[in-house]
Simulated assay, not measured.
Amino acid sequence: MRSRIATLAAACTCAMIMTAGPALAQSGNSPGPTPGPVTEITSGLVSPLKVAFGPDGSFLVAESFAGLLSSISATGEKSVLVNAPGQEIAGVSYQDGTTYYFNNDQGAGPEPGGVLLPARLMKITSAGVTTQITDLSEFEATDNPDGDTIYGVRDASDECLDLAPYMQSPGELFSHPYSSVPGDDGVYVGDAGANAILHVTDDGDVTLVKALRAEPIEIDAAVIALAAQMGMIVPDCMLGLTYYAQPVPTDVTVKGQWLYYTVLPGVPGEGLGVGKVYRVHLQSGVTQLLAENLAAPTGIAVSRDNTVYVAQLFGDGVSTVKNGCTVNVLPAMMASDVQVKGNTLVALTNALAATGGSLVTMRLR
């Protein structure tokens, strides 16, 4: 089972580090630095889910469900770069005069349909020329990185599974590129449909960086209660078994040879506070778990001193992941993304509020 990230609008214990690396961090109430002054640049944004530092001190914001890509000046003046009603505009990023974003076709309903829809990686040059780099659904059609993965309950008896066949499914053909970060000779992409991290060259060649592993969740009373709220019945015979949730990547960033990414496990993980932060070494492929027990992490950034910042959509705002703990530094509701450049942190808050979201900045101390 999977929910599209778009359905978020409607809407513990330590794990082992996969390899030797930095200390595992958990969400908690550890004392941390006092947040710096927060400045609201603008408000009233429609579903602002991704932000990037743009040219000349501007900010680029993907107002995803409205089909808008906007440029916002440091004083809050807004200009529309892309206006595509009915489309999802996602994953904006910027480097050296080029703006990257996704223009995704949207099907009817919250779940992937039987048709593999176009998922276009676009770019806008410094001269204002917009072109398509590639359609990532074509890579999904030929490669389908999680096609051999069985999601859901793997160890139930046939008799038990017959009571709830929706508790098991293969990886489907579905491309939903949601985040991007410029890198060597192109961009890295977090595909929230393919459950994979990809690299796309400037010429449109797509390669697989990492197929993400299913996220294990023990079926306990909390899982059963959440499923009931969603209208799904989990039979008693599955109590205590492991549910392997889809490892939906929600954001990516690169620092040196490491690519950092956030994972929001699909149903039932979206509502259980079991999100995680990982990083993968781009040369060796070594993967490290940096943080867990996060409430829908959907944004990640790394500062010049290697401090990791994470935005939690259903959590308490933006937090740091450093020295073995997660500490809130920007209290906010519905923080959908965070980026850091120099001494400036920019974040999107109240992203799914009916009154509209806000673009805010904070000076880092």
Rank of each mutant, 00 (worst) to 15 (best):
G190P: 03
V252M: 06
V346R: 05
V318Q: 02
Q132F: 09
A156H: 04
G275N: 02
Q246S: 10
Q168D: 00
G275S: 02
L226C: 07
S169E: 15
A119N: 08
G183N: 08
I224H: 07
L136H: 06
G275M: 01
G324M: 07
L161M: 14
T242F: 06
M1S: 12
T355P: 14
E172Q: 14
T134W: 10
S30Y: 13
G342C: 03
Y151S: 02
G193I: 02
D202V: 08
P118N: 11
S73H: 03
A225M: 06
G44F: 01
P118M: 14
V340W: 00
L239E: 12
A228S: 09
S73D: 01
A20S: 13
A52W: 00
I224Q: 14
L364A: 06
G273I: 00
T75L: 05
L136C: 07
I217A: 08
T253L: 05
E159H: 06
A351S: 15
E77N: 11
A108R: 09
Y244E: 04
E172C: 04
I72N: 03
L241Q: 11
D184K: 12
R154T: 04
D146C: 10
A127Y: 07
G240D: 05
L364H: 01
L272G: 15
D251I: 03
N83E: 15
G32Q: 04
C12R: 11
Y278N: 08
E292Q: 15
A25R: 00
V181A: 09
G21P: 13
L69N: 07
I133N: 13
S137T: 10
G183E: 11
G44W: 02
A156K: 01
G21M: 06
D135T: 08
S27F: 13
V234G: 14
G271R: 01
A211Y: 01
V254D: 05
N104T: 03
A127T: 12
E77C: 00
A141L: 08
A11M: 09
L116W: 12
M238T: 12
S58W: 00
D146M: 06
D203M: 07
T307V: 15
Y260M: 08
M1C: 04
L8I: 04
H176S: 14
